[in-house]
Amino acid sequence: MLTLKQSRRLTTWLVGLAAWSVALLLFFPIFWMLLTSFKTEIDAFATPPQFFFVPTLDNYLHIQERSGYFKYAWNSVTIAFGATGLGLLFAIPAAYSMAFFETRRTRGTLLWMLSTKMLPAVGVLVPIYLLAKSLGLLDTRLVLVLIYTLINMPIMVWMVYTYFKDIPREILEASRMDGAGTLQEIVRVLLPISKGGIASTVLLSLILCWNEAFWSLNLTSAKAAPLTALIASYSSPEGLFWAKLSAVSTLACAPILIFGWISQKQLVRGLSFGAVK
């Protein structure tokens, strides 16, 4: 029989083991991708898989030579920041009105907004494609900015709303008594107080925009294609080149992973939707 102390220690140990297993399991594909990106195509195909090999940067050089990584990266950056900025411009006033001037229908409106996220994107592919085509927006960054703004809007409004909800109404009332108009109240009082929340919202929106593939693949081809489209271009036409595909994926993931790593504290706060203060 185990003593109480021993059994507690065993439980801790088992939980730790389980946690590490899950973490490694989740991390392994990324690790393998990174590893493969430094292999030659032959090494990449080898069975059994190789853990030890002579690393090479050929794949990365090849990608830069053939496709021009930075063009795609720049597209990704402008689209992600554009959509996030535009989104904030609408999400902040919307959340402000819902958080501080609540009516009987506010809750319903919020839920309805979220419900639009449940629609399968492919369901509206044809109309949106045709709209973009007739407006001459196919293969432009603008069309992706608009689409991303719209699809991220519900999440952004929800997040900003939950942050605003945490702010005591009296602080805004005090600013109103002090003579602030609505715009001054938002810009000089509300936003500085909720900058942590706004930052996490921005971060989440950037990540979602960066990783979005469905619309970028369908609405862009050469000029406005972001990194997700670049990855896709390596996946099939010339057969499968595992090492190059891994290299391009690594290049696409790296900026946002690094960005996320740096700001993980904000991100965790944001994803808990204001529950953790």
Partner: peptide, 8 residues
């Protein structure tokens, strides 16, 4: 205000 409502 009761809660002071200072700008933090």
């Amino acid at each position: 205000f009761q809660t002071y409502a200072l700008y933090p």
